[in-house]
Design a protein around this nucleic acid. Sequence first.
DNA 1: CGCGTGCTTGATTGGTCTCAACCTTTGTGG
DNA 2: CCACAAAGGTTGAGACCAATCAAGCACGCG
Lengths: 228, 228
Amino acid sequence: MVPKLDVPSLLGHLNLFAQLDEKSLARLAERSQQVRVPRHAFVFHRGDPASGLYVVAVGRVKLSIPAANGQEKVIEFFGSGQAFGEAMMFIEQPYMVQAQALEDCLLLWVSKQDVLAVIDRQPAFARSLLTGMAARLHTLMQDIEMVSLHSASQRLIHYLLNLPCESGLLTLPVNKNVVASKLGLTPETLSRLLHQFSDAGIITVRGRKVTLHSRDALQAREASPMTH
Amino acid sequence: MVPKLDVPSLLGHLNLFAQLDEKSLARLAERSQQVRVPRHAFVFHRGDPASGLYVVAVGRVKLSIPAANGQEKVIEFFGSGQAFGEAMMFIEQPYMVQAQALEDCLLLWVSKQDVLAVIDRQPAFARSLLTGMAARLHTLMQDIEMVSLHSASQRLIHYLLNLPCESGLLTLPVNKNVVASKLGLTPETLSRLLHQFSDAGIITVRGRKVTLHSRDALQAREASPMTH
DNA sequence: CGCGTGCTTGATTGGTCTCAACCTTTGTGG
DNA sequence: CCACAAAGGTTGAGACCAATCAAGCACGCG
């Protein structure tokens, strides 16, 4: 029933593990555990101890900070081939975020102990980890800049302009409620802003599909706080 | 004229370099460069290439994101014995923050090349780096939580309660303008909030000295958004 | 078909910023 | 040592952005 999974090959193709020799890879794969997480279920909650890292084999995961009255602030999404939860292994602190499956997921879990062992044997792996964490630090600082220094419309524009886009046509990766949370907005504000840009003829919105008619016009609005 | 500095001993006492053997330490110390930075001068600007890391020998440094019209969002402070700028070495991107001396500083600079060399030779050093970056990630996420999920007064209270404090008496580490920026507030709002708590009898403020009369009362205000 | 979830729209509120003036402290040069 | 400037901090009035509250709409799924 369980689909056969070539774990060593799967891991070996990730940036994080690409530098590993076959032996270490095989050992890591063998000691890893497969975890199935149905849509909407939690991988871990805030406050859980962090005793390893996760790799997404199939599906997508949402990392967020829980807030009062069932609200949350979305931090990041992880898709196939991405690893998460590596950082908290290194400090003796429980997770301050929660991870929730956006779709039915198959994850691999590698224990802290196994990761540390590989670090000690393969410096290149340590570098991969460092590179990954540095990248995450960078995006987090961008998020802080966004939320501290830019207005709602500037945040939305920046977000749209940095989404994967083919000839002006893009698709929101998640539903608008979640996009709003990621941008630090209420769903109402997001809806109004999209309509504003739509009315101005800069974009067209149909469901999650957005067409950018003029990246320049968007960038212009990002630069100046905007009159009207 | 230049005061004699025992660089190997200085580095060896830092968490980051504590695990290094004498030889590596000596080599790193020897290849490091001393940098003097007068008060208010910049160590680096946003956009500068990141080609190494800094260690604070003497003085304090402020990391911030520059904004339009001379404003800035303060990210963090670094004092004697702390290292900064390690993260950006690992990704091929220029600094997105600027570093400015809060006081006359003496810094040590270690090149990216030298750091990578030590990583490859000493796994324990890689672990130290990972631990440090993980800790920074953690505090950055706390900052995001603060600024996205909590009100101005909640942020101030949290900040006060987490400052080093001896029997209710604490001192702001920097002037109020900078504290305000760190908290994502205007100086005006910070001033008003301090007065509010002062009027409520919870704290006393004299310059940078703050006396907390009741941590419990503060915590109570942090929990509930507050009526009046 | 009916219900729930996601999304939109309108009216209103309110927390925080902005602008402007003034006060206080610090530091500096005559 | 005083005078003055500059920086840091406070206070008030007002505006504004985005949140909240409250309905209502549209779509998809059982």
